[in-house]
Design a binder for these strands. Structure first.
Length: 897
RNA sequence: GCCCGCUUAGCUCAGUGGUAGAGCGCACGCUUCACACGCGUGAAGUCGUAGGUUCAAAUCCUACAGCGGGCACCA
């Protein structure tokens, strides 16, 4: 049999995914057990324009580990993939292409033609991330892939809209919104970003009418003064008490504005007097409503000044207008001062243009009403359960406690068009279809609202709409809802988690997911957030190419919920681990003649050899630990347990201990059995590893002798043999054998101590030694392992003695746990002085520890107050240390001149 | 301004009220018939600082410092 010495991940990766997919392994229908419990995840839909980044790779790995694990447990498992239509990004992308290739704008094409182009673009480029997910090994059910602009999901969006409108939760009206002058659309709170900025604070003076007095206001945006309709002061501010109700002459405008009292004003800040521009600032808007102030729009949708700003300013850009206003104030002697000032500025999350707050006619959703149910669910029942609970449950609840109306409409073409129609008189009809609207309106002359809905409006429905809602009888909805867990990053808690919960509770009557697992953030190696603009992102596909998908997945699974600085070293070490697995399998396969998976551990465990009892104990303990860890979302613990079981227990010890039997020249039933045992352990280990490392485990599993359809979990009987449908190993408690582990530990310690002696005393690697072992009177646990001890320590002989009193003086000695002592005669290699120093140092160290422990034991406070078992534990430890120091003392004597 | 998280070996990170852990890196020795992406052996930390609770604190509490994050305000 020819097996390369080094594992080539790419070769294995290419082979298996297509086969799994075409065999239908990812679809829940592969499960033929009608009573199988259900496990379901909907992917948080990535942006259709996007490509895979580390955050996706991390989330997808977690979701795939969970899905594969649950599938191997025999559950009917669904992981549903899809993308969202990303209104603004997609539209911008297509517009850019249009401009570049044909020099056209979307308006040149018209709405209908433009949308055809978007769909064409989506067909051509939109599949990027789904292709990349195949590379990751994601076991998603592609037959259920959804896109937010699909017909079914569009129907869901309309249903959502109409129902909320009918209930008065959605309304059409004027409100203060965030407007992006570049993208030419309204944005919600969650689509804008605050950014610190070094700017200036301008102190402007407004003359008081009929008095030789001026009121100074401070502002970062002087140009908005053209739209001021009042100045506000705190009602308790004595400095301005006499001005309440006074009139100010607003410079540059010829208008007169009142001084009003409002508690919002902080007397400590600035001058204590605030200019009020209700049409261009959210706080001023609110103040304007409280005082019935006029809303004067002086800035338009392009961030240019309007006619109402005055002839001098009309048409100027907002920043040009700012300069000019300041100039004029200076000329008039009304500019008191200008100071440097750092403040935060609001920018469009997508294009970074400074947002212009505007009053505008839009559609809004009263989220607070929907949020109430979500808030109750989390407060009363911890639904959903956040992992980790701190700090995310609190982040979630505090957001739900402060919900503002959600600006739903977007002035775009790409998206779900708002299902509202207007008749010639301007009356609005909200309906599920134009026909419905016509019926209600009693006329055919209707015009549909030109705007589309926020992309997140459709994402909010994702867990129910992808499963068939609003069709209440949709089989998938009945079967897979509520979903088991939502896995996502923390920046998405408001955007998705909260809104999906709200819609799930409202329309399906139940929480959208049991758990919400929040992944960590991956930074670059300097701790900087990865970003396109900084160019410091690590492309997961490059990492896959360099180290393999399985190795990358192990790193990502270990990262789980922790913030981490990315470091290729970790991937490299798991690449090495994959290679280790490959080579362990290589050893098994090169010695597989006569072996069969599932055999070799016949009969009573008590009749098995020590190392066999031991490895089965370790294996089952590992299975228990890994299962527990995955269930508790402690993926790093699962990876740690698997890594150390495979490398340390299986490779370093079990294979080495089995080698003589496995590699025997002559075929024999004993050799067959030993070969079957290593393959048996390997096979179970591969299954345990599979959710984390799907490709290499499948690649190797397929080659094992005796693997076939009968290796599958009962729920998948009849399917093509694949490890992904095999049963996940469940811990057999009866095989977890404390005694075997303790005894094996003694053997391992003995071998390690002898190796240590060999190294410390520079015994040549090939040179054989003799061992003298005193077993300390607790029975000889080594006797059955003599041949293995000889092999692994390169010993020609092992002699058991009651005491080491009579071994040659020129021996290196070690005192082990349990009163075991070992001596290695090394005539000519022993420097007595050095050896005495070495043993002396060891004795000193133990002496120190036992002194410390004895002091603790002699403290009555401790013995009285500490739990009895702790005291006993300590006593035993002291006894153990005593035994070893005594042994070391004797060794020193033996080494004495 | 309010809230939260983190601070453990050179690096990246686990961990726990009762003997400090891993991977990488480092040192030494190895063509040991699966693997140098390897084997064997080893060195390395007063667990951010200062207090407190406790028989016992790296682990719990308080304060502080540094780093990071969220929310609000920002005239």
């Amino acid at each position: 049999m020819e097996i390369p010495k080094t594992y080539d991940p790419k070769q294995a990766e290419e082979r298996h995914y297509a086969r799994w997919e075409s065999a239908g392994c990812f679809a829940p229908e592969i499960n033929k057990d009608p009573h199988a419990p259900v496990y379901s995840i909907v992917i948080p839909p990535p942006n259709v324009t996007g490509s895979l980044h580390m955050g996706h790779a991390l989330q997808h790995t977690i979701m795939d580990v969970l899905t594969r694990y649950q599938r191997m447990l025999g559950k009917r498992t669904l992981w549903l993939p899809g993308t969202d239509h990303a209104g603004i990004s997609t539209q911008i992308q297509v517009e850019k292409q249009l401009r570049k290739e044909e020099g056209l704008t979307r308006h040149d094409l018209g709405r209908e033609k433009f949308l055809e182009r978007v769909w064409a673009w989506k067909q051509q480029y939109g599949g990027e991330i789904t292709k990349q997910m195949r590379r990751e090994g994601a076991s998603v059910d592609w037959s259920r892939e959804r896109f937010t602009m699909d017909e079914g999901l569009t129907r869901a969006v309309r249903e959502f809209f109409v129902r909320c409108y009918d209930e008065g939760l959605i309304y059409h009206g004027e409100g203060m919104i965030s407007w992006c002058p570049k993208d030419q659309t309204a944005l919600s709170d969650l689509e804008v970003e605050k950014e610190a900025q070094a700017g200036k604070l301008y102190y402007l003076q407004y003359p008081v009418k009929g008095a030789d007095r001026r009121v100074t206001v401070a502002t970062t945006r002087p140009e908005t003064m053209l739209g001021d309709t009042a100045v506000a002061v705190n009602p308790t501010d004595e400095r301005y008490a006499d001005l309440l109700g006074a009139t100010l002459e607003l410079p540059l405008t010829g208008r007169e504005i009142p001084v009003v009292a409002d508690e919002f004003v902080d007397p400590e800040f600035g001058t204590g007097a605030v200019k009020v521009t209700p049409a261009h600032d959210a706080n001023d808007y609110a103040m304007g409503q409280r005082h019935g102030l006029a809303q004067l729009k002086v800035i338009d949708q392009h961030a240019h000044m309007t006619a109402d700003a005055g002839a001098e300013f009309e048409g100027l850009d907002r920043y040009e207008a700012r300069e000019k206003v300041v100039e004029k104030f200076e000329e008039l002697g009304l500019l008191e001062k200008v100071v440097d000032y750092e403040f935060s500025i609001t920018k469009c999350g997508r294009c970074r243009t400074v947002i212009e707050p505007l009053i505008s006619l839009q559609w809004f959703l009263k989220q607070a009403e929907l949020g109430r149910a979500a808030l109750e669910a989390v407060r009363e029942k911890h639904e959903p359960r956040f992992v980790p609970e701190t700090p995310y449950e609190k982040v979630y609840t505090s957001w739900l406690e402060n919900l503002h109306d959600w600006t739903l409409s977007r002035q775009l073409w790409w998206g779900h068009r708002i299902p509202a129609w207007y008749d010639e008189a301007g009356n609005v009809y909200v309906a599920r279809s134009e026909d419905d609207a016509r019926r209600v309106a009693g006329t055919d002359k209707l015009t549909q609202d030109a705007d589309v809905l926020d992309t997140w409006f459709s994402s909010a429905l994702w867990p129910i709409s992808t499963l068939g809602w609003p069709d209440a009888d949709a089989p998938d909805l009945k079967t897979f809802y509520p979903t088991s867990v939502l896995v996502t990053g923390r920046d998405i808690i408001f955007l998705w988690v909260s809104r999906m919960m709200m819609t799930g509770l409202k329309f399906a009557g139940r929480k959208a997911f049991d758990d919400v697992y929040i992944t960590g953030t991956i930074f670059d190696k300097h701790g900087q957030r990865m970003s396109k603009s900084k160019g410091n992102g690590v492309d997961p596909l490059d990492v896959f190419d360099k180290y393999g998908v399985d190795a990358t997945r192990l790193v990502l699974a270990s990262i789980g919920g922790t913030d981490t600085r990315w470091n290729d070293n970790q991937v490299e070490s798991y690449r090495n681990f994959a290679n280790k697995i490959w080579n362990a399998a290589r050893f098994c396969l090169l010695n597989s003649e006569g072996a069969t998976v599932g055999k070799g551990f016949e009969g009573e465990p008590s009749s098995w050899a020590l190392h066999d009892r031991w490895i089965m104990s370790r294996l089952n303990r590992t299975a228990r630990e890994v299962g527990r860890a995955i269930e508790e979302y402690q993926f790093h613990e699962a990876v740690y347990a698997l890594y150390h079981f495979f490398w340390d227990d299986f490779c370093d010890w079990y294979i080495e201990l089995s080698k003589t039997d496995v590699t025997a020249q002559e075929a024999s039933p004993a050799r067959d059995a030993a070969r079957s045992r290593v393959i048996n352990v390997l096979e179970q280990a591969l299954r345990l590893l599979h959710p984390f490392m799907p490709f290499i485990t499948e690649e190797l599993w397929q080659t094992l002798p005796g693997i076939g359809g009968e290796s599958l979990h009962a729920a998948y009987a009849g399917a093509e043999p694949t490890i992904m449908l095999a049963a996940y190993p469940q811990a057999l408690e009866a095989l977890i054998d404390e005694r075997a582990e303790t005894e094996m530990q003694a053997v391992i310690e003995l071998i390690s101590r002898v190796r240590n002696i060999r190294t410390e005393l520079n015994v040549k690697p090939g040179e054989e030694v003799q061992l003298f072992v005193s077993t300390g009177g607790n029975g000889n646990v080594f006797a059955a392992s003599v041949s293995q001890i000889k092999r692994l320590t390169r010993a020609a002989s092992v002699s058991f003695k009651d005491s080491l009193a009579e071994v040659p003086r020129a021996s290196a000695r070690q005192a082990l746990a349990g009163g075991v002592e070992v001596a290695v005669p090394l005539e000519g290699l022993i420097d007595f002085e050095q050896e005495r120093a070495r043993v002396g140092r060891e004795r000193e160290k133990l002496e120190k520890e036992s002194q410390r422990l004895e002091a603790q034991l002699s403290n009555p406070q401790f013995t009285e107050r500490a739990p009895a078992e702790k005291v006993e534990e300590l006593r035993q430890r002291v006894a153990e240390i005593r035994q070893r120091t005594d042994a070391l003392a004797q060794m020193l004597e033996a080494l004495a001149e």
